[in-house]
């Protein structure tokens, strides 16, 4: 395997990690705000404090890892994406900042402002939306090179159905992933009320998810035929993904084996996410930038990969410890420990 492919695979894997654990986080914020409106707040917010507060920084590092690694392995992305993403990137940053500080201001401090909880909930929807725009831009068609500088055509980006299809999918995916995870988690904590509520949300969002995903494939056909054809060539990955989706819905429906349902959900997204990623090959920004012409020099690539392996050797045991203490500690998740 070439260094380029190792690099992009590692980054894509981390982005996938961020999509999953970020979605849990974002969706939970939304459900929290929604339940404030409907008066069921006590059910969700306890879970959010027990599970999300200790790990949110870890979630954030996944994101930082992705963009720092991207500039490390593919320095030219800094030039292309950095120049065009000033506005969407800054907006996403501001929303992320509001969100991150919420945990500190609201959960650790004393009882805070309702408005902040709503901003926190809304940011859970807006962040995935603004970040997913990067995927749309990367598919090509919105960036032209003028006087050697990449420029983004905001109007056609805004008017493109593809943009909206991806935005909608990202929002629904967040809500669905989060609901399934929280179903499993609240079941583990023994909170039947929360389990029932979250199970309902999972089922509500399951069908729209598949419709939105199909919508993207249809839109892509009109938008970028090369990409579309490559995607179709990988149809079997998406078929596996679809079967896993059926599995998740089945178990949730039957109120059985929530753990298996969650694993199938992660599998479903893994297949779809990697299918999409592979079909993008070799472009980082269609048609201007490929992973080959944007790649760093060999010495740096090897140094980064070595650093990555050493870093992982350090992190995996620590991460295991964190999960054992919080996610899998029966006493802790049932709220019997502080």
């Amino acid at each position: 395997m070439s260094l380029e492919i190792i690099g992009i695979s590692v980054l894509w894997l981390f982005l996938f990690g961020y999509v999953i654990i970020g979605s849990i986080d974002y969706g939970a914020g939304f459900f929290n705000a929604y339940s404030l409106l409907t008066g069921k707040q006590h059910i969700v917010s306890k879970i959010i404090q027990r599970y999300l507060s200790p790990v949110w920084e870890v979630t954030n590092v996944f994101f930082v890892f992705f963009f720092v690694g991207m500039v490390g392995f593919f320095p030219e992305t800094a030039f292309y994406f950095g120049t065009i993403l000033l506005i969407p990137g800054s907006i996403a940053l501001i929303l992320l900042a509001i969100r991150g500080s919420y945990y500190a201001f609201e959960a650790y401090g004393t009882k805070g402002h309702r408005g902040y909880a709503f901003m926190y909930g809304a940011s859970g929807i807006l962040i995935p939306a603004s970040l997913s725009i990067v995927l749309t831009i990367a598919t090509g068609g919105f960036v032209t090179i003028q006087n050697g500088e990449p420029t983004l055509d905001y109007l056609s980006l805004f008017l493109s159905p593809l943009t909206w299809a991806i935005v909608i999918l990202s929002i629904i995916a967040v809500l669905y992933i989060s609901a399934v995870f929280l179903t499993w988690y609240s079941h583990k904590t023994g909170d039947e009320g929360a389990t029932a509520l979250m199970r309902k949300y999972s089922l509500i969002w399951a069908v729209p998810l598949i419709i939105a995903a199909s919508g993207i494939i249809i839109e892509l056909q009109h938008h970028n035929e090369v990409h579309f054809n490559q995607l179709m060539g990988l149809w079997w990955l998406f078929a596996v993904s679809f079967l896993m989706w059926i599995g998740t819905v089945y178990f949730i429906w039957k109120k059985r084996k929530y753990g298996v349902a969650l694993s199938l959900l992660i599998g479903q997204f893994a297949f779809a996410f990697f299918g999409y990623g592979i079909s993008h090959y070799p472009y980082l920004l269609y048609p201007h930038l490929t992973i080959f012409d944007g790649f760093t020099n060999e010495a740096m690539a090897i140094a980064l990969i070595v650093a990555f392996i050493l870093g992982m050797l350090l992190l995996i045991p620590s991460l295991y410890l964190l999960l054992r203490l919080f996610l899998f500690d029966g006493q802790y998740i049932k709220g019997k420990r502080e």
Binding site: E57, V68, G69, V71, M300, L304, A307, L314, S318
Partner: peptide, 16 residues
């Protein structure tokens, strides 16, 4: 890029 990249691991470690 190397120290910037390694910094992320330091954050990770600290955060955990």
């Amino acid at each position: 890029a190397l120290p910037l990249f390694m910094e992320v691991f330091a954050f990770f470690f600290e955060a955990i």
